[in-house]
């Protein structure tokens, strides 16, 4: 009855599907939250801007176990959001991955926006562009950097094991469907059991997935 990742295609598929769903949703949510912040900070000039940038950049290196622990405390039954019953669900994993991915996306997008040459903006203003036009031009100029940021956020989310193990709990049902078992937690689990070969194969699957997603996104981004 022990679940076998290699001989049971339902089990493997289910783990892959959960990994992708959780990370893609997390990156989508993070992107929606992050880009406005990146643009707002990037365009504006205000006191303390360097401090805000420093905070965002610090967030890029936030340890995932700590994020998992904090999210666990917030979502656990005794926690402030305990009544939502989110602990050990995919939603909990999405939340913790958002916390991890959002600073990466914000930080990289921000530096992309800031690196757009001032001359480009000045030129846009110069030909009579409104503030919105200038923003659009800048966004267009910065798009590769923004896409890189989103991909980096996705990379952080899907390769992450510490926090999803804590808040997700690595749960699988007996019929081989995964509730909160992702590729990374499954790899960690196989290593714990001493099934290093299975773990390696799962690792290869994860690598191929990340490669595919990167390929698709870069293609869509026009590169």
């Amino acid at each position: 009855m022990p679940l076998d990742a290699l001989s049971d295609p339902t089990y493997l598929r289910s783990i892959i599907r959960l990994s992708l769903t959780v990370s893609l949703v997390a990156v989508l949510v993070s992107t929606v939250l992050s880009l406005p912040i990146a643009f707002a900070v990037g365009f504006a000039d205000f006191r303390g801007k360097r401090f805000v940038t420093a905070v965002i950049n610090t967030g890029m290196g936030f340890p995932s176990v700590v994020v998992g622990l904090l999210v666990w405390y917030v979502l656990s039954n005794q926690g402030p959001l305990g009544t939502l019953n989110l602990i050990y669900t995919p939603e909990a994993m999405i939340i913790s991955q958002c916390v991890l991915a959002a600073p990466v996306i914000t930080g990289v997008a921000l530096s992309a926006v800031e690196s757009v040459d001032d001359a480009v903006r000045d030129a846009a203003y110069g030909v009579g562009g409104t503030r919105a036009d200038v923003a659009l031009i800048t966004l267009k100029e910065a798009r590769y950097g923004v896409i890189t940021g989103i991909l980096a956020g996705f990379g952080r989310a899907i390769s992450e094991v510490g926090s999803v193990l804590i808040v997700g709990g690595n749960i699988a049902y007996a019929d081989g469907t995964s509730k909160t078992r992702t590729l990374t937690t499954a790899i960690q689990f196989e290593v714990r059991k001493g099934e290093f070969e299975v773990a390696l194969i799962l690792g290869a699957v994860l690598l191929v997935l990340v490669l595919l997603v990167n390929g698709i996104v870069l293609r869509l981004g026009g590169r």
Binding site: N77, I87, Y88, G169, N170, I171, Y173, A174, K179, R192
Partner: peptide, 25 residues
């Protein structure tokens, strides 16, 4: 019996984590 279904959840974790999970769930 062959346990299965949504009520039977396999964690793949140690006893401590499993007790924490049971306690929470």
């Amino acid at each position: 019996l062959e346990p299965g279904g949504e009520w039977y959840q396999q964690l793949g974790q140690g006893m401590g984590e499993t007790l924490t999970n049971a306690n929470e769930s």
